Computed example of a mutant assay.
Amino acid sequence: MTRYDGKVQPGGDVQIRDVGNARIHKRNVGSMGNNAYVIESKATGDALLIDAAADWPKLQQMVSWVNVVGIATTHRHQDHTGALADAVAALDVPTYAGADDADAIEQPTTTRLSDGDTIEVGDLRIDCAHLRGHTPGSIAFSFTDADGHSHLFSGDTLFPGGIGATNHYDYQSFPQLIDDVEERLFGRFDDETWVYPGHGDDTTIGTERPSLDEWRNRGW
């Protein structure tokens, strides 16, 4: 484990960040450099694994000191679900995914999520935002820590410098995704909100907000 700066490397160490009453674990796994996260309640040790993306042995090591009570998948793409079957077999916990992506995920989904749903993890309430355009059922997960700071796990909907890809599949739509990101992320979260994306470095809503019109005008 190393000091938390949000800049994790493929196959590298877990980074851990203490935020009020919660602890966030981040690790980069797999050939596509996916970020996997654990949100842990400090009060109970209960935790939610977000995106069992790849390399179950490394993810298993990351969760070995917490009590995982659920596995949440941000969206259907295989690079975000490659270790899901192994994780479910090892942990035997409920799974969560967007209602409109669940049927496209090979591992059965216990709970299908919609916009505004919540997941309880110890004393933490994880909120769900449905964001269409990258996939039909992408879900961003968020919580507010005891100090009043928001933390947003955006999957492949929002990154430093732009939104997720919308030009690879016929179900993708740039206008839909940019509208949902503007309304359901920039419209709901303040500038101090920390963003943990599905790939790459962390950012904040405030860092990205000034570029929203530029993204809309450029079309990607």
Rank of each mutant, 00 (worst) to 15 (best):
R3L: 15
R3G: 12
Y4M: 08
Y4Q: 06
V8R: 10
V8I: 11
V8M: 04
G11P: 02
G11M: 04
D13H: 10
D13S: 12
D13Y: 08
D13L: 12
R17P: 00
G20P: 00
N21G: 05
I24F: 03
H25Y: 15
M32C: 05
M32Q: 12
M32L: 15
G33L: 09
N34V: 04
A36T: 05
A36P: 00
I39V: 14
E40R: 10
S41L: 03
D46Y: 14
D46S: 11
D46Q: 15
L49M: 07
I50L: 13
D51G: 06
A52L: 02
A53I: 00
D55E: 13
K58Q: 13
K58I: 09
S64C: 00
S64T: 01
G70Y: 04
A72T: 03
T73R: 01
T74K: 04
Q78Y: 15
H80W: 06
D86S: 14
A90E: 06
V93K: 05
V93G: 01
P94N: 02
Y96V: 02
A97F: 01
A99H: 13
D100N: 13
D100G: 00
D100Q: 13
A102V: 01
I105Q: 00
E106N: 10
P108D: 03
R112F: 11
S114T: 15
D115E: 12
T118C: 09
I119L: 11
R125L: 12
I126C: 03
D127C: 08
A129N: 14
G133L: 09
H134W: 10
T135A: 02
A140E: 06
F141K: 02
F141L: 04
S150P: 08
L152F: 04
F153W: 09
S154D: 04
G155F: 06
D156S: 04
P160D: 12
I163P: 06
A165F: 06
A165H: 11
N167F: 11
N167P: 00
Y169R: 13
D170C: 09
D170A: 11
P175R: 06
Q176R: 15
L177R: 12
E182D: 14
E182Y: 09
F186L: 12
R188N: 09
T193H: 01
T193W: 06
W194P: 00
V195D: 08
V195C: 04
V195E: 11
P197L: 09
P197Q: 12
G198T: 14
D201W: 15
T204A: 08
G206D: 13
G206A: 08
L212F: 09
L212P: 05
W215S: 07
W215M: 12
N217A: 15
